[in-house]
């Protein structure tokens, strides 16, 4: 049984559907990547899964139907790092991390996790007392990832983590995401425009096209298939 099972997901804005029945799965400990052009519905998928949009269709996490309230989704074990990072700018870095632990009650565990992510992202420790709005873009992205991980999710959703960041920062970030997956066993579902980078990380790839999953396969499949590569991946 897969960790995340999505069947016939439909969602959109107002009367118009952007997603016309998405099917995808993420196994435990797996890194899944969603590729697709602008407007294919990648961000809409992430928002619908996280409970930020009304949706229809079946979404199960660990076999249980997932609710549609953002905080319940987090409590069930799935956290989203939103596009644009969603930093709580007026709160300190440390407060941002504590907000990420909103669904947890174990004080000791929370304190340990703060230390763990400070070890992973040392720059956050240096700036723990500063307002999060003062961080650089890359630092805010690290904070967003760390905050989402504070809820100890089984599955971490990342919506275009590379957006607006310098290439060197992006490489470091993806290395860290890979390490988190390897060490903690946290499954990842990553939306990414930078296909090459994403394929290095991915176990499984879903290709999204106009609100539907057009192809699913392993990263190797996608690299090998010249037609798909030229058409969708651009290299």
């Amino acid at each position: 049984m897969s960790l995340l099972e999505v069947r016939g997901l439909r969602a959109g804005y107002g009367a118009a559907d952007v997603l016309h029945g998405i099917d995808l799965t993420v196994d435990e400990g797996e890194v899944a990547v969603v590729l697709g052009a602008n407007g294919a519905g990648k961000t809409t998928t992430m928002k619908a899964l996280a409970g930020m949009l009304p949706r229809r269709g079946e979404v199960r996490l660990g076999g249980a139907e997932l609710g549609t309230r953002p905080d319940r989704v987090v409590a069930a074990g799935m956290s989203l790092v939103p596009q644009g990072r969603g930093t709580l700018a007026t709160l300190s870095v440390l407060d941002n991390l504590h907000v990420g632990a909103a669904t947890r009650k174990d004080r000791k565990g929370i304190a340990e996790d703060v230390e763990r992510w400070f070890d992973t992202f040392p720059v956050l420790r240096e700036r723990s007392g500063q307002s999060a709005g003062l961080l650089s873009g890359g630092e805010q992205q690290m904070l967003a990832v760390a905050r989402a991980l504070m809820s100890r999710p089984q599955l971490l959703l990342c919506d275009e983590p590379s957006l607006g960041l310098a290439p060197i920062v992006v490489q470091g970030l993806f290395a860290t995401l890979g390490a988190i997956n390897a060490e903690q066993g946290t499954a990842l579902l990553v939306v990414e425009q930078n296909a090459e980078l994403a394929l290095d990380l991915a176990h499984r790839v879903h290709l999204l096209e106009v609100g539907e999953v057009a192809a699913t396969g392993t990263a190797e499949d996608f690299r090998r298939d010249d037609a798909v590569r030229r058409a969708y991946l651009g290299f």
Binding site: R69, P82, L88, A89, V99, G100, A102, A148, S151
Partner: peptide, 21 residues
Amino acid sequence: GLHMRAVADNPESAALAGVPT
């Protein structure tokens, strides 16, 4: 109090972080 400050700052982000807004 922390959750109240988070919601005041950005309700959407707070909800995504698990705050029952």
